[in-house]
Amino acid sequence: MSTTEIPERFKGRVAEDDHHYSASGLSHEKLAMWVFLGSECLLFGGLISTYMLYKNKLPAGEIGPNDLFDIPFTSVSSFVLLMSSLTMVLAVSAIARGDVFRNRVWLLTTAMLGAVFIGGQVYEFTTFYNEGAGFTTNLWSSAFFTLTGFHGVHVTIGIIMLMSLFIGSFTGRISQESAEKVEIIGLYWHFVDVVWIVIFTVVYLFPQ
């Protein structure tokens, strides 16, 4: 690897090739994503705790979840988001096989499913707002919009990253060798989906 001869006095006690060394066997990027997602758990943990606390403190008579939630609608959009995890898996496995075309298709599908979910969220927010629950209306509404909005921003960033991969696949930046990029963004995408399962359960399904 190196072009200079290792001096005699170091022979045997220094690495012959110190490049591309990873003690854990994971690439830096993938490890960093796992570590980052660990941190994200606490971020959502804090917001979910805040919501849980305030959901029960809403003064009587204030507009709240019972007046607004449309569970069937949100269930459908949640299902759409969950399906996007499946298509994400398909995208990762496609690029791992070197199938750039299918990778492209599944990346785009994943992004579209994510966009449908975001569209549903925008519709939901607008409806709630029109029914009188704005961001500043009361304790519950502030907590609700912050938590779900924060998740929505995460999904949106995920979509942007997926679209970047999609575009990148046309410029040759995404290939079988760089399949890990897709995998890493897939990790993020799955995380965001899993968080939504928690949020959906806590926010929509737990008795109010």
């Binding site: 591309h20 690439s27 830096h28 990027e29 960093a32 994503m33 980052f36 924060f150 921003v153 995460h154 960033i157 942007i160 990253m161 970047s164 990148g168 930046r173 760089s178 890990e180 990029k181 890493i184 963004i185 993020y188």
Partner: peptide, 19 residues
């Protein structure tokens, strides 16, 4: 060596920024 993959982190940061 995975220059492009800093994208992941950059995007993660961007998310912090937006947040």
């Amino acid at each position: 060596d995975h220059g492009g993959d800093d994208a992941t982190e950059a995007a993660a940061l961007e998310e912090e920024v937006n947040a």
